[in-house]
Simulated scan of single mutants.
Amino acid sequence: MTEILRVENLKKSYDGFLAVNDVSFSVAAGELKALIGPNGAGKSTCFNMLMGQLKPTHGRVYFDGKEITGHKPRDIWRRGVGRTFQITGTYQSMTVIENVQMALMSHHRRIFTIGPRAWRLYRDEAMELLKTVAMQDQADRPCSVLAYGDLKRLELAIALCHKPRLLLMDEPTAGMAPTARVELMQLVADIVRDQGVSVLFTEHDMDVVFAHSHHIMVLNRGELIADGNAAEVRNNPQVQEVYLGGGTLFKEDTHA
């Protein structure tokens, strides 16, 4: 498969402490890949280096064959990398569709030229994106009254506004009820399948990870200790030791 993201020997140190230590991996086009690990394993630090929020101490990051190491987040975003965060960041005073329209205005470089008729800009395009995440029936509701799971769906629609080829999702189901978690990740899997978007996501819900991921990577104390399919990761003794101190890591999953 065509490689969309390649990471080579990535390191990040703070006063001698290695938060991420010599991590290398790749993500293929159209792949849904999970990055898991205990709290403090280095997952968010790794994401922040991929997206430009942090500059690596060492190593290189390539997107679509071109180096993006240390580039500014907006430049990386413009190249076609999107991101969602653990905590949603929507405009609570605006409606659902207005939030998506604002993101589209930014994508089309209209954010500083809006006027009193801005509410008309890109409304049809925004509605199509809301249909993608099954939020079209809530288009005119203010974000302040939305359930948390619906805010996560809206955040996904916003992230899709600039038609990313790679989407980084940092704990997309955090804070959601179990049923809503399954529904959101199935939605993400459908987008990967239908639109060919690559997704790299971090997650603590192992049912979500093993039900939907094509491949899984495991970080521990800043080091990558496993990278493979669900069966390979589940049966990896080092991964089992990290999570449970030995024994079977996860129950068998018929989706894997």
Rank of each mutant, 00 (worst) to 15 (best):
47 F>D: 10
47 F>N: 13
48 N>V: 04
50 L>Y: 04
50 L>M: 03
51 M>P: 04
52 G>H: 03
53 Q>Y: 14
53 Q>E: 14
53 Q>G: 05
54 L>E: 08
54 L>I: 10
54 L>T: 06
55 K>I: 11
57 T>D: 07
57 T>H: 04
57 T>A: 07
58 H>P: 00
58 H>S: 09
58 H>Q: 12
58 H>M: 09
58 H>E: 11
59 G>Q: 02
59 G>A: 04
59 G>F: 00
60 R>W: 01
62 Y>E: 06
62 Y>H: 13
62 Y>T: 09
63 F>H: 02
64 D>E: 13
64 D>F: 01
65 G>I: 08
66 K>I: 11
66 K>W: 04
67 E>N: 07
68 I>Q: 05
68 I>T: 07
68 I>K: 04
69 T>A: 05
70 G>N: 10
70 G>M: 09
71 H>G: 13
72 K>Q: 13
72 K>I: 14
72 K>S: 15
74 R>H: 15
74 R>C: 13
75 D>C: 02
75 D>V: 09
76 I>K: 10
78 R>L: 13
78 R>D: 08
78 R>G: 13
81 V>P: 00
81 V>Y: 02
81 V>M: 08
81 V>D: 04
82 G>S: 05
83 R>H: 05
84 T>H: 05
84 T>R: 06
85 F>A: 02
85 F>E: 01
86 Q>L: 12
86 Q>E: 08
86 Q>H: 11
86 Q>M: 12
86 Q>G: 11
86 Q>R: 15
86 Q>S: 12
88 T>V: 15
89 G>K: 15
89 G>E: 15
91 Y>T: 05
91 Y>P: 01
92 Q>W: 00
93 S>K: 07
93 S>D: 03
93 S>L: 02
93 S>R: 06
94 M>K: 06
95 T>F: 05
95 T>V: 01
95 T>Y: 04
96 V>L: 00
96 V>H: 01
97 I>T: 01
97 I>P: 02
99 N>F: 01
100 V>H: 05
100 V>L: 09
100 V>W: 00
101 Q>C: 00
102 M>F: 08
102 M>D: 07
103 A>E: 07
103 A>K: 02
103 A>N: 01
104 L>N: 07
105 M>F: 04
105 M>Y: 00
105 M>R: 09
106 S>T: 14
108 H>D: 10
109 R>V: 06
109 R>A: 14
110 R>A: 06
110 R>Y: 06
110 R>P: 00
110 R>E: 07
110 R>M: 08
110 R>V: 09
111 I>T: 11
111 I>W: 14
111 I>A: 15
112 F>W: 10
113 T>N: 06
114 I>T: 13
114 I>P: 02
114 I>S: 13
115 G>L: 09
115 G>H: 12
117 R>E: 07
117 R>I: 08
117 R>M: 09
118 A>Y: 10
118 A>W: 09
119 W>R: 14
120 R>Y: 06
120 R>H: 11
120 R>M: 14
121 L>M: 12
122 Y>T: 01
122 Y>R: 00
123 R>N: 01
124 D>K: 14
124 D>M: 05
124 D>F: 04
124 D>H: 07
124 D>Y: 01
125 E>L: 06
125 E>H: 05
125 E>S: 06
